[in-house]
Design a binder for these strands. Sequence first.
DNA 1: GATCCCATTCTGGGATACCAAATTGGTATC
DNA 2: GATACCAATTTGGTATCCCAGAATGGGATC
Lengths: 220, 220
Amino acid sequence: MSQMQNVERQLREMILGLEIGPGERLTERWVESRFGASRTPVRAALLRLETEGLICRDGRGWTVSPINLAELEQIAVYREAVEVAALRLTCTLQDRSAVEIIEGMLDSCDDKTPREEWHRVGMDFHIELARLSGNEFLFRAVRDAMTRLSRARWLEVRDEAALGRAWAEHHAILSAVRAGDADSAARLLSAHIIGSRDRLVTSLRNDRRGLRARGFAVVA
Amino acid sequence: MSQMQNVERQLREMILGLEIGPGERLTERWVESRFGASRTPVRAALLRLETEGLICRDGRGWTVSPINLAELEQIAVYREAVEVAALRLTCTLQDRSAVEIIEGMLDSCDDKTPREEWHRVGMDFHIELARLSGNEFLFRAVRDAMTRLSRARWLEVRDEAALGRAWAEHHAILSAVRAGDADSAARLLSAHIIGSRDRLVTSLRNDRRGLRARGFAVVA
DNA sequence: GATCCCATTCTGGGATACCAAATTGGTATC
DNA sequence: GATACCAATTTGGTATCCCAGAATGGGATC
């Protein structure tokens, strides 16, 4: 694997895992020494992460993208459009047996499953559901949107009830898809996305001071 | 303006203007000498164009992305999802006076307008319409999709009637938006996008041999 | 003590040198 | 004439060096 891919992957994981906080400054030299690569692959990796929205330019330098509440709301609208479109497309397919795999993914989580795993499965549910549509662009759009939402979802304070609620909503959506009921599935998915957005933004808005105290930039 | 942006912009224009044909091989050294920049900005520019889908990796090297008919069909589905979502969003806005600007854009084209300008305005119509929604992600999605479609639309054989038809459809969509009739606008836009797709793919499929004879790679 | 200014440091942007792998072209062999 | 093989060349990947401009910090001045 090339140095560029190495740096890109590791840096992405550090950012998504909040090991580098939203709003923190980055210098190419720091990344260079941190991962033992030279500046050429480092710069290539930074350029790629910039297009993913994980880092952004800050004048001449680089900054880990802050959590942006207005952006989170816009992403939810975007997600709703592409995810519902993908879902409707999937409902028109003859062979929808792949929903079983996603169902199995959900069922692999139980009370003993660590929070981190719930988080990952919750994201993968949406990504894999979009992949079923067979449309590469809808799939990528959902995957990229989930990447952008990832850190915020991780910061969200979620109780057991909220996790169970999401789990139930995911299952309900799959049931509708399996039945081929596109309208119901779409309605459930829309409600799920918008509901999640509202809880997410509310949670972050309430915790804004605490998050800032932890050194995380949360804007708008 | 930086060298990277220079190379990126000029190379993008060469690719979109078909000065470099779909499927042609690119070497970093050629780009380097062609634009008088060194490899560092050239590589940065290539990485960015790769994320735009205008070039793609070909083993170790670079290739100008071929025209991919299957991809064009998928993009149309993607476009339909995001453009309709943006349109519906726009219809909910109080102030939709900006549609007048787009209308003026359309009306700036007449019989004497060169074909190239019709082409550009046809793309900008969709991009600017999406921008009105105020949702940055829907807007970018449409802009990126139009960029990916650009070369294919340019290759399409379109007669006067087809151009006039698109013009009329664009106007009908704007009228519905101005009236705030989201459902009608959405229906018209969907039909327009899918109709355009069918004509585009049919045209390219028929011309496939001719296009290949001109050195343009057209796959699937 | 506050403020202005200048030298130093640091940063990203660019250019270039080097390397390993892959491609290529030609030649020798069958 | 086809094919196998080897050397020269070319390629992208990487490391490193240089530069101009921005940021920084300390000291002089008021």
